[in-house]
Amino acid sequence: MIDKRVDSLAAAMRPIRDGHTIHVSGFGESGCPTELLHALIEHGARGLTIVYNNAGNGHLGLAALLEAGRVRKMICSYPRSSHSVVFDRLYRAGAIELEVVPQGTLAERIRAAGAGIGPFYCRTSVGTPLADGKECRRFGDHDYVLEHPLRADVALIKAETADRWGNLTFRKAARNFAPIMAMAADHTIAQARRLVELGAIDPEQVVTPGAFVDAVVRVANPISEYEALLAAKRP
């Protein structure tokens, strides 16, 4: 019998070790597994490399993990926002490493890792500082940069609905990086707002099939980072 349901957030964190590389789904607050990140803080792993499109907002979720000093390196496309105060401070103090990757290249590096593809050539970033030190080659009429797959030890993703086989659906644009990150990690942990019986998800609607998922944990009422930011601003 296959049962990927895990009773608690703490139990879901057990496979994570110091020094792990961790994919974290989300685009801004949309699709970010805030509760899994808080459980990761409780778990205590250190020296982590985090792959996430942004660099956290306010003092919740990823920002809280950064603030707790657990992250050695961020790999992201856009580590700057009006609320990314924690990352700003760490970066300017030289306390964290940063690899900036164009967003589409970041997505394709993750997809390639998940699909068992090796390095690939991509036109994005040719002729820019982000191609410095990388192999460039001309094919046909275009120049390309060699990019490498980006695999993680663990993926932390946010889903809408899950079953015990790990089949997942997502909600609106909160899908973003989650399906490809689920494919590209040795151990994928999904938090889902709803856990349903096997067969209750219409097979035509499954976005991430359970083969890409190792653990699901229910978080019925996930925190809204946006509402938390608003609340923090209120006098």
């Binding site: 685009f27 949309s30 993750i110 490809i180």
Partner: peptide, 30 residues
């Protein structure tokens, strides 16, 4: 806040609109 644009502002979806993951999104682009 599950439906925001690239600038992280809330938006809406028109009839006929669709959601997809990031690799598909940039396959549309490239």
């Amino acid at each position: 806040y599950d439906l925001i644009n690239a600038g992280k502002k809330p938006v809406t979806l028109l009839p006929g609109g669709a959601y997809f993951h990031h690799a598909d999104s940039f396959a549309i682009v490239r």
